[in-house]
Design a protein around this nucleic acid. Structure first.
Lengths: 223, 223
DNA sequence: TTATAAAAAACGTTGGATATTTTTTATTTT
DNA sequence: AAAATAAAAAATATCCAACGTTTTTTATAA
């Protein structure tokens, strides 16, 4: 469920393969720029050559994998520049989404933001004292859910899709920062709290500003 | 070349199929919400079932086709709401891109904008006096090139990718407006001229404002 | 009519095979 | 020894045919 894109949608082979590959790309088991040879992948993950190709096309759509005609697939590279680009675009998307949400969101939306924030706080406590893979993944998912909640009331399905996509693309970097202990959870907590308060107070400027800072903090660790 | 995504990249079967399907979706030959049955498509466009599936996955990535596990593919629907959403997101993307371009773009960028504008003017003249399919397509491509030039200097490959994606998604609507004679080319020309002038004058506000208006004009025809 | 069961259609997947293209290795030439 | 070339190996992109499953349609019973 953690890497399956939409709830219990692991019904098809391609969806399962996609989950597995997503996971391994996120954790760096499949490294940036690494060539993805169909045969090799099949041995490791199963599935037929066609299923695997289809899977790779899907991951291509998500930006995790790139392909060149006649010379196959490779894991999307992850240089400093890539990171910056992903995060910069993420900032713009989420700012827009939050702005729209602030315009259209009602009290129920506020409730969902609070709930997501609450869950995230719990996850951050968990991951601080026990940063194993599973916990890390659950934390990242809680994080995603929190940011998603912020733009949930934007009324724009496409914007929501973009956010998901870019959040997923940034996962690799985020998990790396976590592994290297470069995330300052205290500061994160503080910003998140401020962000939620600004949302509840409908203080556009403060909200957008804090959101930006929170995402920017992931461009380089701050610990 | 007109529907091939990247220059002379029609080398592979899947790429060719993708071009053909893109075209037919853009012109409405394949209508919104229409079920896309693999076998049917194969008969019409050729290719094996796998090639076709891969193609549909690609178009899925581009937002032209949607899929549901176990019940195949269909042309992405195109309601009023969809149109509005696509265009609204397009506005945000292009505004951001233009803003960044204005920050980073040099004199050569300005030159390319002027060139693209020049070519677009020519195309608009062409399409006004002879709005057949091919001309329409060439006009749309010139249009795409013009808007692309505006964000070309943004320095963000991902933002550029997004622009392309959303421009492509809006093509269906645009061609429909053209067919129905609901595009006011005089007004378009005027806005485009103003836009280029603002860019050259590095007048951020005017540029962004005009860009927004130009895109908004496509949400509903104005003729 | 509404529900249910049977039949048909379409989806997802596999295995195996092959032409083409790319990459690697070995050989010859400058 | 470096560069160019040819031969061999590997990998990609396809196709065909087949089959279990799920979904959709059609027919039948309640």
């Amino acid at each position: 469920m953690l890497f399956s894109k939409s709830k219990s949608d692991d019904v098809t082979v391609v969806a399962m393969l996609a989950s597995a590959l997503r996971r391994d790309i996120s954790f760096g088991t499949l490294r940036p720029d690494q060539k993805l040879k169909i045969e090799e992948l099949r041995q490791r993950y199963g599935g037929s050559n066609h299923s695997m190709r289809e899977t790779l096309r899907m991951l291509g759509a998500e930006g995790l994998v790139e392909s060149t005609a006649q010379r196959g697939f490779r894991v999307t590279s992850a240089t400093e520049d890539d990171l910056r680009d992903v995060m910069q675009v993420r900032i713009e998307i989420e700012r827009t989404g939050l702005e729209w949400s602030l315009k259209h969101g009602d009290v129920h939306w506020e409730g969902r933001v609070m709930a997501a924030h609450h869950a995230l706080r719990k996850s951050e406590r968990d991951v601080r004292e026990n940063p194993d893979d599973l916990t890390a993944l659950q934390w990242d998912e809680a994080s995603r859910a929190f940011f998603a909640s912020l733009i949930e009331a934007s009324g724009s399905p496409r914007l929501i899709g973009l956010q998901q996509k870019f959040f997923d693309q940034s996962r690799r970097y985020r998990l790396a920062l976590l592994r290297e202990g470069k995330l300052d959870f205290d500061k994160r907590s503080e910003r998140q709290k401020k962000l939620v308060e600004a949302v509840l107070a409908r203080d556009n400027e403060a909200a957008l500003d804090t959101l930006t800072k929170e995402i920017e903090a992931e461009i380089r660790g701050e610990a």
